[in-house]
Design a protein around this nucleic acid. Structure first.
Length: 293
DNA sequence: ACACAGGGTCAGC
DNA sequence: GCTGACCCTGTG
């Protein structure tokens, strides 16, 4: 992997195990939009970025390499050896091996923990297009502008304080529906400092999970997503309705109503790489769901 | 038209 | 431990 600056771009050459379509389409993030030229534009950590890929070469629309080194490098998890992860997981079973062949360029992004908390509270009993809509609306209404790109203004994700103080009317306009009070109350907890979600990164996974589930609207599944996508914990296995189906069908060979049993089965099977396995499997089943039967 | 499902969680038994 | 309700939108 080589990194250099060229024509006001930061260029990463000879990248491996990296495909933008897999990364942005696998359901871990909701704020990247695909442009007509195939590039993606989005906001993370209060920063605007346009990024595109031509085979093994990735172009980031940044004037300064330091911005990459300081923020985006970690965001895209560039220091991790995905070839090794894929090799270890593929040896576990044929189902995950197939999912990895399909989503071979997937990476688990290191996203902002508070943004992930609110986003996955919104995700409960919701559809992906509606989640994207609600998060975009809240950012436009409550987030501060971070820049303009191709004539469009982009906004940061709202702060805990701004969401805690938001009118219910606005949260209704955002179509957050019955999740409005969860958004407000969870944001209040973070804003008041009653619990600092960012400090949970330093706790063991199980302890951090218990703390997360004290936020209203956060159950076992959302907590696992916050741990995986926002707190750098990979020994988790978020079980949603899609993962439930693939685990019942391809692994446990029976219907399982207790989601904890599915989670424990997967954690035992995939070990410390469970979070990566979950993402490969989720992306695979989501992209194949329409074709079944 | 209208039932049903969509990255679950919570309150009430 | 189970069960139903939850708000709203897209789909057949």
């Amino acid at each position: 992997m080589k990194i250099f600056e060229e024509k006001n771009m930061v260029v990463i050459d000879e990248v491996t195990d990296f495909v933008l379509d897999h990364i942005f389409d696998c359901g871990q993030c909701f704020r990247w939009e695909k442009e007509t030229d195939g590039s993606y534009t989005g906001v993370a950590g209060g920063q605007l970025l346009n990024i595109r890929q031509e085979g093994p070469t990735v172009f980031l629309d940044l004037t300064d390499r330091k911005t990459y080194e300081h923020y985006w490098k970690h965001y895209f998890d560039m220091d991790r050896d995905y070839a090794h992860i894929k090799e270890v997981l593929s040896a576990k079973d044929e189902m995950v091996a197939e999912a990895i062949r399909f989503g071979h360029g997937l990476r688990v992004l290191n996203q902002d923990a508070f943004e992930i908390l609110i986003t996955f509270i919104v995700s409960a009993r919701n559809s992906i297009p509606m989640i994207r809509h609600t998060i975009a609306f809240l950012s436009e209404q409550l987030g501060h502008p971070v820049g303009e790109y191709r004539g469009k203004i982009y906004y940061a994700f709202p702060t805990p304080k701004s969401l805690a103080q938001a009118d219910y009317k606005l949260l209704q306009e955002a179509k957050s529906a019955f999740r409005a009070s969860y958004i407000k109350d969870s944001s209040s907890i973070q804003a008041s400092g009653e619990t600092d979600i960012y400090k949970l990164k330093n706790l063991p996974t199980e302890m951090a999970k218990r703390e997360l589930m004290l936020f209203p609207g956060v159950g076992p599944k959302v907590a696992d997503c916050v741990l995986l996508f926002g707190l750098c914990k990979q020994d988790v296995f978020p079980v949603d309705r899609w993962i439930k189906r693939v685990m019942e069908k391809s692994y446990m060979k029976q219907e399982v109503s207790d989601l904890r049993k599915i989670r424990n089965y997967a954690l035992h099977h995939f070990g410390s790489l469970s979070g990566f396995a979950q993402q490969y499997l989720f992306y695979y089943v989501m992209e194949h769901r329409a074709k079944e039967e």
